[in-house]
């Protein structure tokens, strides 16, 4: 997938240099679509999904302290 993403990116630049802007735009769009797909695939975890539970505030401390809602 990553190889295809970079191949499309190089193709976009080369097509742009050859004055083929439409083909370059298509190639760049496909590369961007692959990038987004790869990004989502990379950050997805079978346990947490797209969440980041390690960033959650530990509410038990706040609950234990008097005067906190």
């Amino acid at each position: 997938m990553m190889t295809i993403t970079f191949a499309l990116l190089v193709a976009a630049f080369v097509l742009r240099l050859l004055d083929l802007p439409r083909a370059a735009a298509v190639s760049l769009s496909l590369s961007a679509a692959f990038t987004i797909g790869l990004f989502l695939w990379e950050i997805y975890s079978p346990d947490d999904g797209f969440r980041m539970p390690w960033l959650q505030v530990e509410l038990r401390h706040a609950a234990a302290a008097p005067g906190h809602a």
Partner: peptide, 16 residues
């Protein structure tokens, strides 16, 4: 890393 490579793709896209 893979995410680092994707950041490079985004920077190349900016250049484009």
């Amino acid at each position: 890393c893979p995410l680092c490579l994707l950041q490079r793709v985004a920077m190349f896209g900016c250049c484009f």
